[in-house]
Design a protein around this nucleic acid. Structure first.
Length: 261
DNA sequence: ATGGTCGATATTCGA
């Protein structure tokens, strides 16, 4: 069994203790991280390598930044989402891994938040989603197991948030945002958690403010999207909710898919 | 009661 996880850690330097504890507890084979908020040179790779992981990062100063941690050495790493050479935000890294007889592609992505919606940030989000759709279209033609894992900053359906009314005019829940996410799914990509449980009130993010965690005022925005070749091998999906109650938590929690690769 | 809270960084921005 292979376990592939995604976790927005909201700053790797502030989260290194929690990250190492979680890696020991959950022991994922591949972990996709977002919001490392670090340049590659400052990423605390030593502590993670000591736990038996290879570390590949695509960082930048101050904000954003993604990483791939893996038990096995990647055969190939690609940094940056194709489709806009002028985009300097570090939000995408792809790794190709050999597991048994097959190649598996895993991407760690940090989709733009898009707020406030009356600024350039929202069109940037929609353009980024369009680039992701183009990328996925090409990769699906390979007919390989593909896992697009990350913080999508998309609440797919009303049941994926505590109170849909408060999100009505938010970039994470606008009709255009949800429509663009459905376009992704309609390419043939499966939302792994939704495919294995139709239950409401499963969240992956709780704001630091206003006691959101204590009130279970959360949203589900961290997703694993699977090609048919990966979806056919999916066994289960877990949300590691307990780490949100740890000291000095990230505002997101890990989502882990188990596969019989 | 028109805030609230984090992280990285610089005394503000992004979320």
């Amino acid at each position: 069994m292979i376990r592939i996880a995604t976790w927005n850690i909201n700053g790797v330097k502030a989260r290194i203790e929690n990250l190492c504890q979680w890696l020991k507890d959950a022991s994922p084979d591949i972990a996709c991280l977002q919001e490392i908020k670090s340049v590659d040179e400052a990423f605390p790779r030593g502590e993670i390598e000591a736990l038996g992981y290879h570390v590949e990062t695509h960082g930048q100063k101050g904000f954003n930044g993604v990483a791939l941690l893996s038990r096995m050495r990647p055969d190939e790493i690609n940094r940056g989402l194709p489709g806009d050479e002028t985009d300097e935000q570090a939000r995408f890294i792809e790794g190709v891994f050999t597991i048994g007889p097959r190649a598996i592609r895993v991407c760690s992505l940090y989709l733009p938040n898009g707020n406030p919606i009356d600024t350039e940030k929202y069109p940037y989000k929609l353009r980024w989603m369009d680039r992701l759709r183009t990328f996925a279209t090409g990769r699906l033609q390979l007919e390989e197991p593909l896992i697009l894992a990350g913080d999508y900053n998309v609440i797919p359906e009303p049941i994926d948030c505590h109170d849909p009314a408060v999100w009505a005019n938010d970039a994470l829940f606008l009709p255009q945002t949800r429509s663009a996410f459905r376009e992704q799914e309609n390419l043939g990509l499966t939302d792994a958690l939704r495919a294995t449980t139709a239950a409401a009130k499963i969240y992956t993010f709780w704001d630091y403010q206003a006691g959101a965690w204590q009130k279970n005022n959360g949203i589900r925005i961290d997703h694993l999207l699977l090609s048919p070749e990966a979806a056919d091998r999916l066994l289960s999906v877990a949300v590691d909710k307990h780490v949100r109650a740890w000291e000095k938590p990230s505002d997101h929690v890990p989502v882990i898919g188990s596969f019989d690769f």
